Amino acid sequence: MDYFKQRRAYRNFKMYEASVSNGQNNLYRELLDYANDEGKLDAQFRMKNSALLSLTGLSEPGLDKARNSLVQLGLIKYVKGKKNVKPPEYRVIQLYGVSSRATGYPTSNPTRNDKSKPTGLDGVGQQVGQPGGQPVEHKDLTSTDSHLTGTDLDDDDAGITRASVIDKWTSLWGFPNAIAMPEINGWLEQLPADVIDFAITIAGEHNVQARGALKYMQAVIDGWQKRKITTLDQAKKAAAEHDQRMKNGRGSSKPTRAKETLPTWAQKTPEKPASDGKLSPEQQAALDARIKKFKARRPEKEGAEA
């Protein structure tokens, strides 16, 4: 199965053939992306309910309801697991191509709760068609749109996958919680995975903490979307321009003009008498008088002591 063709066909399915809720969409995309990442697009694979609950942000009843709806819509096969023994088994049904949509899909009977009596893993149950009748071939699902190319904005970059995005988020802030995960899924629906990965990288470089990660990411991605940024190169250019603006902003304050002063030797100062270590005649005369007076008093003092 071709992952990108499947995504395009699924998008057309949502647009023209059936209404898909947010919960159903999140579950389907998690299953599709996991199958692609693990190389099991054409094979059945097992996935724990606990993992799907964390990835989709659904409650347990919500997961059951969304899964049963996907089965009835003919989007997945589902085989019930055995508690504490084997996780449920899934298979993504190919949507593009004539035969897959014309003949219907063998699926298991939908169940209300995984805790009910196990049906076993030895086979797939009875056929379940579309609600209200059998599946009908749809031209939008069986034809190739010539306008959809390998650079379709809905397709993930070949080097960066959804799993890579989740891994990077987890390495910085821990595994996305039930609030963050739907936001990430929404971003990945609207922008390539490498763009979201780059936004997380920016947040990491700015030392954004876990408690502010979601708000920071929302601000970055909302800003890019308003500017119609849809590729990694555009995002990198926008980030570089932002950094330059911030740098210019920090250095744009009016520089304080240094007060210009003349050097000491050029300044006008009151004239001072030159001092070469010698006393003026007046100073010398005063000093001599003081010495003479001191000597005159000295004999009188010595006679008194005798």
Rank of each mutant, 00 (worst) to 15 (best):
W173E: 03
R7P: 00
G133A: 05
R162V: 01
Q244V: 01
R245G: 02
P299E: 11
A180S: 04
Q267R: 15
M181L: 06
E137S: 14
V220L: 14
L153D: 09
V195G: 02
G129Q: 10
A193M: 04
S146R: 08
S54T: 03
P270C: 00
E17V: 15
G57V: 01
V195P: 01
R101H: 00
L31R: 04
P263W: 01
A199F: 02
P131H: 04
P182C: 04
A35G: 06
N49S: 14
A199L: 02
Y3M: 00
L53K: 04
T231S: 14
S164D: 14
Q72K: 15
W265Y: 07
V195T: 04
S252V: 01
T161G: 05
P106I: 03
W173H: 14
G123F: 02
Q130C: 00
E89W: 00
T230H: 10
D157F: 03
G133W: 01
I76S: 05
I229W: 08
S275M: 13
A240L: 12
V98S: 09
Q209P: 13
T56G: 03
K82L: 10
R257H: 10
D154C: 01
D33I: 00
G125T: 02
E17D: 14
Q72G: 07
L53E: 00
A203Y: 00
T170W: 02
E260C: 00
P299D: 13
P87L: 04
R29C: 09
G123K: 11
R250Q: 10
K65Q: 12
P61K: 05
T151R: 09
T151E: 15
A289E: 11
V79T: 07
L58H: 05
K82R: 13
V136P: 09
L53M: 08
I221R: 04
D64T: 10
V92L: 08
T170Q: 13
T261I: 11
K115Q: 13
K48D: 05
G212R: 11
R298V: 09
G120K: 12
A163R: 14
K247F: 13
P182S: 06
L214S: 12
T201I: 06
M181T: 11
A306R: 15
L31M: 01
L32T: 04
E205S: 08
D288H: 05
I76L: 08
L55M: 09
M217Q: 09
E89I: 05
G120P: 12
R211N: 11
N25R: 08
D2I: 03
V124Y: 08
Q94G: 09
T230I: 01
S50I: 04
A193L: 01
A238L: 10
N26V: 00
F4K: 15
A66L: 07
E17T: 13
A235Y: 03
R297Q: 06
L172H: 14
R7F: 04
L55F: 09
Q6V: 02
K301R: 15
R211E: 14
G204M: 07
D140H: 13
N113L: 05
N185C: 03
L148V: 15
V92Q: 03
A285I: 02
V220G: 02
D157E: 06
Q209I: 11
T261Y: 14
S99Y: 11
I76F: 07
F4S: 10
K247S: 13
N36H: 13
P110R: 07
D288I: 10
T111L: 12
L279C: 03
K272C: 00
E38K: 12
T149G: 15
M1R: 12
S253I: 09
A289W: 12
